[in-house]
Nucleic acid binder design. Sequence first.
DNA 1: CTTTCAGCCTGACGGC
DNA 2: TGCCGTCAGGCTGAAA
Length: 268
Amino acid sequence: MPELPEVETTLRGVGPHIVGQLIRRLTVHNGSLRWPVTEGIAAITQGQRITAIRRRAKYLLLELERGSMMIHLGMSGSLRLVDPGSERRKHDHIEMLMGNGACLRYHDPRRFGAWLWSDNGYPQLNHLGPEPLTDEFDGERLFRLSRKRKMAVKPFIMDNQIVVGVGNIYASEALFRSGIRPDRSAGRISLQRYQLLADHIKQVLHSAITQGGTTLRDFVNGNGEPGYFQQTLDVYGRGGEPCHSCATTLKEIRLGQRSSVFCPACQR
DNA sequence: CTTTCAGCCTGACGGC
DNA sequence: TGCCGTCAGGCTGAAA
């Protein structure tokens, strides 16, 4: 499941191979993604140059001479540079052949992702909170926006209006490192603890991106997974197993329709 | 306003 | 062995 570090790793992996290149041909094999991908996108983008690639939250933005394409990997999406002659795999829904011969393929079994073109901005980006790795995001912001809110802290930090890019994995891990129970009411957490939490969110995302950097070569003619999968997870996916810190059995609950694992001894 | 929840979709997995 | 039910989850949009 692509979290922010995988999106960032994807950007760094494919960016150098497509920025500055002409789009020779874009082909939609299956446009049934979150929003329908129409054939029109091929005609609009063909012959245009990609001038830049950037990321906002978990969205990738390919800037074109006219407009831009916005890509989201959803739950199961990935972008890979492949040999143009190579056979398409099942669930390779979109491919883009570049002027330099590079071929970018979008693969997404669950089709929760998106691939849009617009020259007029994207409503999805309108009400997003700050990027987690900038100074705009800190414990003070978490404290201020959480006052009088009864929602549990885990769904609170996963709310994209509060801060973007904190998915289930890293929300769980950051709360463990901070010693905060995921079901604690967001409005009843002190400024001091929020400062600790914000620091751990930054730390866990930053280290995952760094580890992702070790496998960037896999984005070219490779099948490797981004490096953050190598990261040791303390709680995510470990319900019923012993805590890495105190060996207490980790507890699994559901918060906002998402599984949440925590240590009942270390997290309060 | 805040909060909750169904729905989108396929693959993996467990039970029989 | 294969069938069936359940689960996983980011995000949207509607309901409470």
